[in-house]
Nucleic acid binder design. Structure first.
Lengths: 355, 355
DNA sequence: CCGAAAATTGCAAACGTTTGCATAAAATAC
DNA sequence: GTATTTTATGCAAACGTTTGCAATTTTCGG
């Protein structure tokens, strides 16, 4: 009746007149145990409703079979998709995933690192805050040889495994695409430069301009957190007075969508008067009218790779020093209506393979 | 240089010539410890880079300070938002959240229940699979007095805490809305009836029809997993030959969106020829042209409530028997273009028609 | 300054596993 | 039938905490 329901291997052992060690080994399929006793033990375990206590096991051999995952937020399309994939894959291999969100707050990220360490996670994957430039709160993991992997939002000068999108190429490709479609004055709305993925996109943007002999103008680049509100503010600035740009490269799709809606309001035709390209290929980009050209970052592939690296590292004996390495996940421009050439009637979705 | 970095309270105790118990108590701010030693201990803990071992503590007092969360998938808007809220809220109170996805597979859900129990989570919140009708795999939690809460996709005859949307009202409201906008032949695309949230929406649909003296026709209701592919199949059936319906109530927005796009292709005007209403108020519903009328289920509120109930139960002494209770989260119809009255006609609130 | 109450600190057991080593039993070799 | 290998099982320590109770120290009334 009361809370006496928690059966342990000791109970099994007593019931069967065996030692706990034998029971433990039997349940873990240790080769030294005869098949007969294994069967007996497992049957009894079932009968008693025994459930292993992961904490006890974890304490004993300092393995929690849990890996931590820190992302800015799980309700955003891109990290959500990655998290999904990582979680499913690791689950297949018997690992739990502790998905945590920093909410883009450095403070929360630091706290998370601390408490995740406390739970003795076996590995950690993180996509950092927009504002994380000092990564020393992850030192504990490195120092204790706990596999540590960064993805998407990765550090610049912190030696660690890294899996990221090809953001330089992305920035370059988008910009060149706009130029090829006839744009001469391209505004870029970027995230804050503390996040070096944006630095790279800006670099791509600049280089594409240079290659096509279009002067780079500082005033045509905005650095801001890529929210709807900020996008509106940017719009107001951009369209407060002519000359209006003829192309906008937004570093995410929320921003691109907001701009598109703003254009509707001020009767600016897209793509005729203004071409817009977003980033990340959010599901909304495909659905809006006109549909928005965006850059697919293949979150499923990225998640898959992160999971593979984690599993790899988890397999290795604990003492192997962490090696620094960087993996690049390809990107692909998905051409849609918002950047179509005005002359030709565009098909709804044209995919152009890059790289 | 090797893995000698894991400091424990024993190390602190030795360093300070204190007993481990004192150190433990000092770190936990036990009232019996003098402030002087508390300070000493904490300082030393810092100096040594001590991090508590949650597994050891957990083992000792059978509390993991972790709660489990099982949802169909975290990449869908609705569960993602709820998960976000729950996770953030519980984190504030020092709990970890183990977010797991069943991928709408009963088999996976059962496995998850098992392994989550193994980790000795302190509580569990679940939104079940579409196909879960037998919930006995959650019995372990009830039997061991581990707080168990269901939300959104909840069981019908399984006594447990439940927090759900007002799906009956939702179905009724949508249907009545369509009727008021002039629809006489309303198709309903529902999820499978194994999930009783759909049963309730169907009930709302039926009752609204009845109230407005519109005959219910079995052939006008589809029961299917609400994917894009299935939505297309339904479209093909619906529009294979006249008479076409003049209203469609889709039980999620993915379906509504797919229908809308299908209509574009076959040159059916929305809302003039056909009115469409979705469910859940996915961000995409607002963005598409025409924007889609949908039902907001206030996922943030639902998440908040789930978190509150969990925290409540976690506070209580373990022996309190689980009480059955059901909380209803309100819904709100968000009227948009896809069900607007046609502009040609003056604004009319159709009250009574023939008969 | 004594003794009792109050405030601190320490001892040791417990939580449920795993695992190196020792031992016992069975199988094999001679 | 004994000696040796192989195969199964058991003992006991460990993992890092927490906590009831006992022991010690401090405080303080008189």
């Amino acid at each position: 009746m009361s809370k006496r329901t928690e059966k342990t291997i000791v109970d099994i052992a007593e019931e069967l007149k065996l030692s706990v060690s034998t029971v433990s080994r039997a349940l873990n399929n240790h080769p030294n145990i005869s098949t007969r006793t294994k069967e007996k033990v497992k049957k009894m375990a079932n009968k008693l409703g025994y459930r292993p206590n992961a904490m006890a096991a974890g304490l004993r051999n300092s393995k929690s079979r849990t890996v931590g995952l820190v992302v800015p937020r799980i309700s955003m399309f891109f990290p959500a998709t990655i998290s999904t994939v990582i979680q499913n894959k690791l689950h297949e291999h018997g690992y739990h995933v502790l998905i945590c969100q920093s909410n883009d707050s450095l403070e929360q990220e630091i706290a998370l690192a601390e408490t995740l360490y406390s739970t003795r996670i076996d590995a950690l994957a993180v996509s950092s805050t927009l504002y994380t430039t000092d990564f020393s709160h992850f030192d504990i993991f490195k120092d204790n040889n706990i596999p540590l992997v960064f993805f998407d939002r990765v550090p610049k000068d912190y030696k660690v495994k890294v899996i990221k999108g090809d953001d330089y190429l992305g920035g370059y490709t988008v910009t060149e695409h706009l130029i090829e479609k006839g744009c001469k004055d391209i505004v870029h709305i970027s995230g804050p430069l503390t996040c070096n993925l944006y630095t790279e996109r800006v670099a791509g943007y600049k280089n594409a301009l240079r290659k096509h002999k279009i002067p780079f103008r500082k005033s045509r680049v905005f650095y801001q957190e890529l929210t709807k509100e900020n996008a509106l503010l940017a719009c107001e600035k951009i369209f407060s007075r002519p000359p209006y740009p003829d192309g906008i490269f937004a570093a995410n799709d929320t921003t691109a969508i907001t701009i598109l809606e703003y254009c509707r309001k001020i009767n600016l035709r897209v793509p005729e008067d203004l071409k817009i390209v977003g980033y990340s290929n959010d599901p909304r980009a495909e659905i809006i009218t006109p549909s928005i050209t965006s850059v697919d970052q293949f979150p499923a592939i990225m998640g898959e790779r992160v999971a593979n690296v984690l599993l790899d590292l988890l397999q290795q004996p604990g003492t192997t020093p962490q090696r620094y390495s960087e993996e690049l996940v390809p990107i692909q421009l998905i051409e849609r209506g918002s950047s179509a050439a005005p002359v030709s009637k565009p098909k709804t979705t044209v995919k152009k393979k890059v790289k």
